[in-house]
Nucleic acid binder design. Structure first.
Length: 621
RNA sequence: GCGCCCGUAGCUCAGUUGGAUAGAGCGACGGCCUCCGAAGCCGUAGGUCAGAGGUUCGACUCCUCUCGGGCGUACCA
């Protein structure tokens, strides 16, 4: 079969000697210019309420004899595991140690110092913990005023001076866009939006797999069996057939691979020859065909610089490697050995026939990105099976003492698995015919949504358009729901079940909130006009809202969109529960207005959360 | 062989970097639409956190080993 799949099949990540986490700190220790990104131990982004509480706590610890500098990093305010304990909790273990006291007694002393004020309602010691409650009115005011004003972290933060390159989607365009390509695409797309929300300058890059042996194999197949008429009739379908045929025939005729290698060498000669023209034709057709899935998924890129873009940049990159003195000959090939970095396999940069490889182009791309964008981080959203590739890429840059090495960061994700007849999970493989094209899946989901709409909301005016939105979102949401490192189990039944923690569930909450706003018949009040004390019963909703900023921040730090997904589910759940017993329409005016503001803010925050995931929030569904 | 990842309820997964009584959804069972959208809500059942050691005041979380499953392992990507 044809091997590899562009970055869509590019799946290695760093480990061993140069793990991704910590390399920024290591770079800083070495005096490199890449600033460390916020570390995991940095305090979470604080709301006004937290800042106030924090100040009160630091004043108290100072009174208790602790130096502010020493106490500050130990004052970590986390949501308690059990909401009954309070709004935020402080584990006093380390502070107590600093004070030389037992945690429980220190906690009581600390709690006693935090007397109530207009923000803090109570501080109570519970064993070694101190639990705090905010005044309900203050909680509501702080959260809702900020959301209504679209202030950070609920709205977009001002520019923070950071620059992040995100390499995502990056499919091998000589093959149809299938389910396996979707993960990198939607995860990368979400990460772009999340970083932008935080004020980072983002360069979203589609590093197309439009060069190298896979493309050469496609050319070989086309030259042998293809014809242009059929190609134009249905390009992707046709190329997929050629791809499959090559896979079958190469088993009996391994010389096909040699033929492909010759074609690649001819292509890479730079001459205007048959290969060049064919490459152009196949590339154009593939690229056109890829616009479909991208637009359906609402995915865009800032730069579409595929592997071929680096054709004329690889020689300079190789020179740079040679000049650094790390390039060696091995069996006629040019390689960089990385044993001292704990990587046994050498990084191949030039084959013995003189042609380049995936690594060569990635190296050239890293230099290009450094020079063009000056990124603090370069995220490669590529499957986990390519870990070694990125270990090596980073390793070569490290060995060359290139500063950009510190920025290189593989963001691996799990495989898409399909269920076999005997109930086991196995990798999707185009060759065994169990590949599912993205369009098929989206169509299936959209059709299901369309029938649900027919049943539940037959009068919906733009039903087809909404069905498309809800259906595609369901698939995207499902991919962003779990930690990205987990394999995705592709299961039709589960994929088309829209109950519970799903995209439609969150969208439904938005639609329901919109509906209430339409029905109540009065405009959303200004926060200044609202009596926030009337929202004491909405504490659960408000506390979840307050976590939004932390969720987005963590998602960016950990390159983990599922943290945002989880937050939207939690907020949708809380608002659904709240609405059961708290009516807006028909409530007395002051209560109605307060609840209306809450409803509006919930809708806005859910919409923002979905937007960060690349998912629309229709007003009706 | 070596390296890396994963293992939590029947199924699919959370568990905020070592803190309080391990939480959701699906599926199952039982309730709730003359009441702002039932794609919803409320409740019940369901756990040896793969196993064994270790570190710690405290371990699902960190370390070691074992057992399962997966991925990778120089002229593919």
């Amino acid at each position: 079969m044809l091997s590899g799949a562009g970055r869509g099949g590019r799946v290695a990540d760093f480990g061993g000697a140069c793990p991704n986490t910590g390399d920024v700190a290591a770079a800083r220790a070495r005096g490199l210019r890449y600033p460390a990104r916020p570390s995991a131990t940095d305090p979470r982004p604080l709301t006004d309420l937290h800042t106030h509480l924090r100040e009160r706590l630091l004043a108290a610890t100072t009174q208790l004899g602790l130096a502010r500098d020493a106490a500050e990093p130990l004052v970590r305010l986390d949501p308690p595991k059990n909401r009954e304990h309070g709004d935020v909790a402080l584990g006093a273990f380390q502070l107590a140690k600093l004070a030389g006291k037992a945690p429980p007694s220190f906690a009581s002393e600390l709690a006693a110092k935090i007397t109530p004020d207009d923000v803090i309602e109570s501080a109570t010691a519970a064993g070694p913990f101190v639990n705090f409650k905010f005044r309900r009115a203050a909680l509501a005011r702080a959260v809702l005023t900020a959301i209504a004003a679209d202030a950070a972290p609920y709205g977009r933060s001002p520019k923070n001076g950071q620059v992040v390159c995100i390499d995502y989607s990056s499919p091998n365009i000589a093959k149809p866009f299938h389910i396996g390509h979707m993960r990198s695409t939607v995860i990368g797309n979400a990460l772009c939006r999340i970083h932008r929300h935080l004020g980072t300058t983002v360069h979203g890059i589609n590093h197309l797999g439009d060069w190298g042996m896979p493309f050469a194999k496609m050319m070989t197949a086309y030259m042998r069996w293809g014809n242009e008429q059929e190609l134009h009739r249905s390009p992707m379908r046709y190329m997929f057939d050629l791809y499959k045929r090559y896979g079958v025939e190469v088993k009996n005729n391994p010389a096909l691979d040699d033929e492909a290698a010759l074609h690649f060498k001819a292509l890479e000669s730079g001459k205007d020859n048959q290969e060049r023209r064919m490459w152009q034709l196949l590339r154009d057709e593939s690229l056109k065909a890829f616009q479909g899935p991208y637009s359906r998924l609402g995915v865009t890129f800032d730069h579409v610089t595929g592997e071929s873009f680096f054709e004329d940049k690889m020689e300079a990159a190789m020179q740079r490697v040679a000049t650094a003195g790390v390039l060696e000959n091995s069996d006629g090939a040019q390689v960089v050995w990385l044993k001292e970095l704990g990587i046994k396999e050498p990084c191949l940069l030039r084959k013995s026939d003189g042609t380049t490889l995936y690594h060569t182009r990635d190296l050239a791309a890293a230099f290009w990105r450094e020079q063009q964008y000056h990124p603090n981080r370069i995220l490669y959203v590529v499957g986990a099976e390519q870990k070694l590739h990125f270990d090596q890429l980073k390793g070569v840059l490290t060995k060359m003492k290139e500063e950009v090495a510190a920025a290189v960061e593989h963001v691996p994700f799990g495989l898409v698995l399909s269920k076999t007849e005997d109930g086991k999970w196995e990798k999707f493989a185009s060759r065994s015919g169990n590949a599912v094209f993205l369009d098929e899946i989206l169509d299936e989901a959209v059709a299901k949504v369309r029938s649900i709409i027919r049943e539940k909301n037959p009068d919906l005016p733009n039903a087809d358009e909404v069905a498309e939105q809800i259906g595609t979102s369901a698939i995207v949401f499902n991919d962003l729901k779990n930690s990205r490192i987990k394999d995705v189990k592709f299961d039709w039944e589960q994929m088309l079940n829209f109950d519970g923690e799903t995209g439609p569930y969150v969208q439904f909450a938005c639609a329901r909130l919109s509906s209430i706003q339409r029905k109540v018949g009065v405009p959303v009040p200004k926060p200044e006009a609202v009596d926030f004390a009337l929202l004491a019963d909405a504490e659960r909703v408000l506390l979840v809202m307050m976590e939004f900023g932390t969720a987005v921040q963590r998602a960016a730090e950990q390159s983990e969109p599922s943290i945002v997904t989880g937050h939207t589910i939690a907020l949708a759940g809380e608002i659904h529960s709240y609405l059961r017993d708290h009516y807006v329409v028909g409530a007395e005016p002051a209560v109605r207005d307060a609840r209306l503001l809450l409803v509006d803010c919930a809708r806005r925050l859910l919409t923002t959360g979905l937007w960060l995931l690349g998912i629309p929030a229709p007003e009706r569904m």
